[in-house]
């Protein structure tokens, strides 16, 4: 999933302050799963804002709505009337959702209510970890299905740096060394020797270095 975390309430107040009528729009897929932008978070944020603005004696109207996915037009359509009724949309979707709304509602103000963080998983309840950078050229087969491009702080492709001790990354003691995990896993699979193979420089052309990417599926173009 794409994970996100709520923006601090102070920042959100600053964003919505110029507007009278605000639609808080949740997204029922990834950000719901990571507790940042589903209907529960929409309700909590709406209450917090109502409370915050009451103190300031401002008159502000807040409408709550959550759609299944803000990154798909057929769901976005469900929000059209709500968007039209309000001065601004505070989207609790990921950055893709926010921009999809802006593409669909060209003349409306769309504001981000969360910070999009990464592509990851819920490793343990409440703990989310980054697993994929979407580099566009997956090498997981070589690395025992553990991604060093994403999970090594130095994106090392040919083994751990000198700062890996006791299985922990030097950058953060809470982060396991990805290379330690790769070596452990390949050892268990009896494939450690495969790490003797030299991995050439990565072609970043398929990643963000090549500019914003586009995926074209000719077979699905109407």
């Amino acid at each position: 999933m794409i994970t996100a975390s709520p923006k601090p309430i102070k920042e959100i107040i600053g964003l919505v302050e110029p507007y009278q009528k605000i639609l808080i729009l949740g997204c029922g897929t990834c950000v719901k799963t990571c507790f940042a932008g589903g209907e529960d978070e929409v309700a909590v944020l709406a209450s917090a804002l109502r409370l915050g603005f009451k103190k300031k004696a401002g008159s502000i109207q807040i409408e709550e709505m959550t759609i299944e996915r803000q990154c798909e037009n057929e769901f976005i359509q469900e929000a059209a009337a709500g968007v039209a009724r309000n001065d601004a949309v505070l989207s609790l979707a990921c950055g893709a959702g926010v921009q999809a709304l802006a593409k669909r509602f060209v003349k409306d103000v769309v504001l981000p209510g969360v910070n999009t963080t990464f592509i990851g998983i819920q490793e343990r309840p409440g703990i989310f970890t980054e697993e994929c950078s979407g580099c566009g050229n997956c090498g997981l087969a070589v690395f025992g299905a553990i991604c060093p491009v994403t999970r090594c702080a130095k994106k090392l492709l040919n083994g751990p740096c000198g700062g890996s001790q006791k299985g922990v990354c030097e950058v953060n003691p809470d982060t396991p060394c990805a290379w330690h995990l790769i070596i452990e896993r390949l050892t268990a699979l009896g494939r450690l020797d495969s790490l003797r193979t030299y991995i050439p420089p990565k072609n970043w052309n398929t990643s963000l270095s090549g500019g914003p990417r586009k995926l074209i599926r000719e077979d699905h173009i109407l």
Binding site: P160, G162, C177, L192
Partner: peptide
């Protein structure tokens, strides 16, 4: 090139040295 015989995993450190020589 550098080598750190004191980093982990120890067994891999020699493989890494071999790779650096090969490089």
């Amino acid at each position: 090139a550098a080598a750190n015989p004191f980093a982990d995993p120890f067994e891999y450190r020699v493989i890494r040295l071999a790779k650096k020589i090969d490089a």
